[in-house]
Amino acid sequence: MTLTLTVPPGAKVRVRITNENGETTEIEVEPGETVTITLPAGSTVRVEVEVVDPDGRKRTETFTLKP
């Protein structure tokens, strides 16, 4: 399973991925970048995406991906 994120110009994104064992991976994606994350097959993962807009506003979306 893959997750692809494209960050709009001016925004910053931090992604936290937590697996079933509670292990967390965190990455930051710079403005204008596209990143593809390969998620472990057969695992349920929690993905938290934090977006910081150019004006400093933050918003966070959290979702769970199941196999």
Rank of each mutant, 00 (worst) to 15 (best):
E50F: 01
R14K: 07
T2F: 12
V15G: 06
I27G: 12
P31Q: 07
L65I: 14
E28F: 03
V51S: 02
P40R: 08
P31T: 12
E28S: 08
A41E: 08
P40L: 13
T25N: 04
A11G: 10
V47N: 00
E48K: 01
V51H: 02
K12M: 06
N21R: 08
T62R: 02
E26C: 06
T38M: 07
A11E: 01
N21T: 08
T60R: 02
R16S: 06
E30R: 11
E48G: 01
V13F: 01
V29Q: 13
T60L: 04
V13D: 02
V51G: 01
P40N: 10
L3W: 11
P9A: 11
V45M: 04
L5T: 07
T6C: 15
P54C: 13
K58C: 05
V15N: 00
T62S: 11
K58D: 00
V7A: 00
G22Y: 10
V45I: 07
A41V: 08
I27K: 07
T18Y: 08
T18A: 07
V49A: 01
T2D: 05
T4P: 06
A11F: 02
T44L: 07
T6M: 12
P31H: 06
T44V: 06
E30V: 13
T38V: 07
E33G: 11
P54G: 04
G42N: 11
T36E: 13
T18H: 07
R46I: 12
N21Y: 11
E33F: 09
T6P: 13
V35T: 08
E61Y: 15
R59G: 00
L3I: 09
L5C: 12
R16G: 05
L39E: 08
V29Y: 10
S43H: 10
N21I: 07
V51I: 09
D53R: 01
N19Y: 10
P40Y: 13
E48T: 06
G32M: 13
E61G: 02
T18M: 09
G42D: 11
G10F: 03
V7I: 04
T18Q: 11
K66D: 15
V7P: 01
D55C: 15
T44Q: 03
